[in-house]
Design a protein around this nucleic acid. Sequence first.
DNA 1: TACGGCACCGCAAACGTTTGCGCCAGTCGG
DNA 2: CCGACTGGCGCAAACGTTTGCGGTGCCGTA
Lengths: 358, 358
Amino acid sequence: MLRSGGVAGGRERPGERTIVTLEDVARAAGVHYSTVSRALDPDTARQVNVMTRKRVQAVAKRMGYQKDMVASGLKRGRTHTVAVVVGDLANPNVALMLRGISNRLEPAGLMPLIVDTQNDPARLERVLDHLLSRRVDAVIVTAARLSDGPTLRRIRRRGIPVILAVQTVPGIRLPAFTHDDILGGTLAAQHLLALGHRRVAQLRGPADIYSCLQRAQGFSQTIAAAGAMEVVLRSSGPMGTAEEGGHLMRQLLDSKRALPTGIFAHHDLMALGAISVAEERGLACPRDFSIVGYADLPNVERMVPPLTSISLPREELGRLTADVMVELLSSGARPPASRKLAPTLVVRQSTGPPRDFR
Amino acid sequence: MLRSGGVAGGRERPGERTIVTLEDVARAAGVHYSTVSRALDPDTARQVNVMTRKRVQAVAKRMGYQKDMVASGLKRGRTHTVAVVVGDLANPNVALMLRGISNRLEPAGLMPLIVDTQNDPARLERVLDHLLSRRVDAVIVTAARLSDGPTLRRIRRRGIPVILAVQTVPGIRLPAFTHDDILGGTLAAQHLLALGHRRVAQLRGPADIYSCLQRAQGFSQTIAAAGAMEVVLRSSGPMGTAEEGGHLMRQLLDSKRALPTGIFAHHDLMALGAISVAEERGLACPRDFSIVGYADLPNVERMVPPLTSISLPREELGRLTADVMVELLSSGARPPASRKLAPTLVVRQSTGPPRDFR
DNA sequence: TACGGCACCGCAAACGTTTGCGCCAGTCGG
DNA sequence: CCGACTGGCGCAAACGTTTGCGGTGCCGTA
């Protein structure tokens, strides 16, 4: 029998935030609210008679019922949120990767909680605590630096899945989805060698970013194996700024040695900064030197000169990471194995044969 | 007296997710858990004796207690989350704005829930429902199109604060923080006029984006007031792609009329696309025509030619929006007034005097 | 008729916090 | 010595879901 009396409404003023709860629907449908809960959850819907089920569903729809994910999260211990920690939101590399993640998580009913650490390790710690207190179901970290090992181990101990993306930390027991940066460095070296360069330079990124170490390793090994000469310049500042690239280029130009004919910069912006500085000194690219960038930033093909670069499948990496995370959370499988995605060389006009070849 | 017995631990296996609750702390500190709750909340901490307060705080810290924001959210009805709806995460404009928002929300203890609609109105609706069911405290929408009016009004009716950023919809009763796009269009026109251009063209963005209408209005009014000639080309495709700009430029070149000497593109990428197409036909910029872009994308100064553009204070707009939102949520004030931030003209080398002046 | 089995649904206890209320032991004024 | 008052704290009811358990009919079989 329908319980009458206590008709909903009447207490709230028009502007009031009015949320429809299970109980409201239950009253309207003449059932207990637990029945409503069951009728609306696909997993339990068959526990309720098909007639009442339809009725309840209709009433719920009519009243605009929306499950309160906060209450559900508290009860179930699963919030359907995934924290995504990034080093810098405005970095185009990061943004593309995020789009990949976001587009994959959304249809699975998972909400990415994107937090920006501004590449500050202290902020990483703070932010992770904050995220854990929000009971995220899992964490994707795309901003790991070598020094972050302890922090990462700490959240691993919380028992929730953690996946590293883009950046990893050697020796950590966490699945990592990265670009194959050794291959990236190798491709750059092979390209310069194939063009005939025998004296090369490397403008390295920060030493606490593992992918930079990998790029360096791939590059230097290949150069050494070919018996060519290499000079290495190390950046101490932030990752991948034009200023940093210009700074290193100035060092190179100021040294007594002859300018190397081929240069590998660890980031496109570093390459562009280097080119600018060289031009100030009357050197032109690729006439006087060749340079290979890294990351293949958007619109870099419209720069002057269009930059030869190592292209990274960023959005795909994001999708892959999100896919694995969805799988991990839905089937409760064991942590997946790490994977590396291969970068590709994109030849444009910032590289050519060394001058003495012409 | 300390209750002994039932020492925590012993039941959980090492890998188990082990969360410390108020009750755990209470047991360890020998008080009731409501006292712990009060002692740890700055607003209620003075309700508990300073001695016990210190003790409880120490115990909580030692045990690594972290308030469960999910439970707190359920009880208080405030989740300390702000939804931020964007049209495309990978758009550099959006990314910078997001950084501004994110950096401002974080110290206030608010968590941005960033969702990407891929500029799809249907997805906007879906996603907003999802966000509301997560009981977000407020919403910032940066992707509003003219057709989104009804959707926006619907969430306004839910009673939570909504602020529009970057894009607005005319006639809607919601605070909007935007760039002054009329001024932006005006600046572009004034610049071209000052250089001596008398025949100009406008490459317009999509008609359902209000800021494009504003840019057009500012530009056309200024051109008309100076008695110069203008031809308008309308883009029907997505916002601001190079292809779109190239497409419109082709139309312009294919028309019987003489090529206008000055062009205003509604987006930097459109401008770049237009330049590429013109170059294919043997026309050079700024020799044969001048072009002004919009948005001042990162690294656009390194393009060829370095693009004259209208620069928008994106990150500042993000900060401002977030600031207002924080204020709104903490003090419960009435909705703020809309504001417009002024763009600036950045002159580079894609504009110069028209050919006949030389 | 008795009884087991089953389908359906209600009951109520959680999940971890917050918070109004009220108890208790002091203290103080009369 | 008594009553009022107060600071400090415990009690328990929420917040909206989920879910194990058990109750109520109803059917079929012995």
